[in-house]
Design a binder for these strands. Structure first.
Lengths: 251, 251
DNA sequence: TAGTGGTCTAGACCACTGC
DNA sequence: CAGTGGTCTAGACCACTAG
């Protein structure tokens, strides 16, 4: 097979180049680009390995390696005998990919949400810093509470750039925001980084969570990144952990 | 190639069996067994892909797939042009695989330890539960404090079964316990599960951490598992998070 | 039964390391 | 330069799904 099949453009394989970029990596990037550009919608089926291989002019094994990598990154789902699909993030399994609070004892641990406030404003210094925004950027701030198995446990403020989510302030927000981000704005949350601290619950949050002030609480500071690794959401959650915990699995 | 190369024992490929077990999975299990049995020591080089393939009577590609899986599980390290090595857990990178506390600002974040107490005792109900021990089992309890960049930040109690770690109470304990587990007792920590809660620092811990009682603290309850997924260590840590945080990356 | 992904093989060649 | 892991290919066959 001719390597020029993937392109002689910058980035194609050049044996003596300092930065060697394997073919399957180039295929990975091309497919990732299509996902980022929403060429294929979540839930939709992709062409078969053979079709993609023929289209891109590489072997099926090389396409397979790229598809496997995208699957490992949770961007695709492969089902033997059926096909390869764009991953959806609103099914029960996917919710817990980014929601790590679990009940201590029994219970499904399925979270529910109630929006307390939503407003647009100029981004403050913290928001500009965390979301890599320009000085003039505007954000939408969403404040909401969440419950686990009907039990109020969390209050959080979510900041997103207006530029990326135009009109989000006027929408009816679902329980799982990330599926809305994907379906309505074409933004897929690929990874997130959380910083956890133990704090004393501030008076205002104590009122909203209906507990006495001074209670210890878990503060979660999350930045969520899209497929191109850009920060697209900043979220600060304050959680009561009396009857629940944050689950972290180390591998 | 004859499939019987990997063995006609139970678990070998049987095309019509209900539970189909791929060849590379069998190779994975065989190599995992050798790692668990400490046939190859941490840091030691493995035979080359070709040698393993010849020995096991499978193709090099199949061995490669098994080695890649073991590498993904952080049990092996592969270095192009050099070879495949058993992973070590005492280098700087590996320390942070299981230690998720980071300084808020600058600093290396390299932890240090000081053992406060170490004693053997009959396992209590919690320990028997968490470590899946019999009623008569005994454990060693280690209490120690840890500091980040010279700053005292954590106190923890570690319980391990005496049966798995004979004589550990008499040893000089290093900063990174898991490398001791591997080198001295042949036990490799493969995964760990942590449950985090926000609590009010108890009086006793407050004294040992040299802060006032009532300070909020992060409580981390960890169970660590070995290569065969047996719980081998229970650890409860209480951390001050005033100038540091727990880092969790979601993918 | 046709089509998909999953496994396995054999062989060629490339990139990297160390002697 | 020899030896290692890494990439890529082509082709055969297996397991699974759905019409």
């Amino acid at each position: 097979m001719e390597r020029s099949g993937v392109g002689t453009s910058p980035g194609a394989v050049r044996p003596d180049a300092v930065g060697f970029r394997p073919l399957y990596r180039q295929v990975y990037d091309m497919l990732l680009r299509r996902l980022a550009d929403a060429v294929w919608q979540p839930g939709q089926i992709l062409p078969s390995e053979g079709q993609l291989a023929a289209e891109l002019g590489v072997s099926q094994g090389t396409v397979r390696k790229a598809l496997d990598a995208l699957t490992a990154d949770s961007l695709l789902v492969r089902r033997q005998g059926r096909g390869t699909f764009v991953a959806e993030h609103d099914d029960k399994q996917s919710v817990f990919r980014f929601f790590k609070l679990r009940p201590d004892g029994e219970g499904t641990g399925m979270p529910t949400s109630r929006v307390a406030a939503i407003a647009e404003a100029a981004a403050n210094a913290d928001e500009r810093d965390r979301l890599a925004l320009a000085g003039s950027a505007r954000v939408v701030r969403i404040e909401r509470t969440r419950a686990l198995d009907g039990r109020l446990c969390l209050i959080e403020t979510i900041s997103v750039p207006v530029a990326l989510f135009p009109g989000i302030a006027g929408l009816d927000l679902p329980n799982t925001l990330y599926s809305l981000y994907a379906s309505r704005f074409g933004i897929t949350i690929a990874t997130a980084s959380e910083r956890l601290k133990a704090v004393v619950l501030p008076p205002r949050e104590a009122v909203l969570l209906e507990v006495e002030a001074g209670t210890p609480a878990l503060e979660i500071d999350r930045i969520a990144f899209d497929l191109e690794d850009r920060p697209v959401e900043w979220r600060r959650s304050t959680c009561l952990t009396e009857s629940l915990h944050y689950l972290s699995v180390l591998r």
